[in-house]
Simulated scan of single mutants.
Amino acid sequence: MAKKVLVVDDEKTIVKGIKYSLEQDGMKVDSAFDGEEALELAKNNAYDMVLLDVMLPKMDGFEVCQQIREFSSVPIVMITAKGDDMDKILGLEYGADDYITKPFNILEVKARIKAIMRRTTKADTQASVLTFGELVINEEYRRVYVGDKEINLTSREFDVLEFLVSTPGKVYNRSELLHAIWGEDFPGDERTVDVHVRRLREKLEKSPSEPRYVRTKWGSGYFFQA
Rank of each mutant, 00 (worst) to 15 (best):
T131S: 09
I181S: 10
I68W: 10
I151M: 12
L130C: 01
R112A: 11
V15L: 09
D85M: 13
V5S: 07
L130N: 01
K3V: 09
V214Y: 02
V193H: 12
I89F: 15
Y94C: 05
V171A: 02
Q225F: 05
I100W: 00
L56C: 09
D194K: 14
K88M: 14
D53L: 06
W182A: 08
G169S: 02
D85S: 12
I181W: 11
G133A: 06
L22E: 10
E93Y: 14
T120M: 03
K203F: 15
D97I: 04
D25P: 00
V197D: 00
E202T: 11
L107P: 05
S166D: 10
L51H: 02
M59H: 08
D84E: 15
L41V: 05
A111R: 12
K12N: 00
H179R: 14
A127R: 09
G221V: 07
D97N: 13
E202N: 15
A38M: 01
D185Q: 11
A2Q: 13
N152M: 15
D30W: 03
S207D: 15
M49A: 09
V195C: 11
C65A: 13
L135K: 04
E70R: 14
R215H: 03
M78Q: 02
E210T: 13
G147C: 10
R156D: 02
N138D: 15
A32K: 07
E108A: 07
E150S: 07
K82L: 15
Y94R: 14
L164F: 05
E23N: 01
S175W: 02
L90V: 07
Y213S: 03
V129P: 07
F71V: 08
I116D: 07
Q225A: 09
I68A: 04
M117D: 11
M86I: 13
Y213Q: 07
F163N: 00
E157F: 07
L200S: 12
R69Q: 08
L164V: 05
D53E: 08
R191F: 13
E150K: 11
E210N: 13
F186P: 04
R198G: 08
T80K: 03
A226Y: 00
V195I: 15
E140G: 05
M55W: 07
P57Y: 04
L177T: 09
F104G: 04
K16L: 10
S175V: 15
L22G: 06
F71P: 03
A111E: 13
M27T: 04
E63Q: 12
F158N: 01
Y47T: 11
L177F: 05
K43V: 06
Q225P: 01
Q24L: 14
L107H: 11
R143Y: 00
N45K: 08
D159R: 09
T80Y: 01
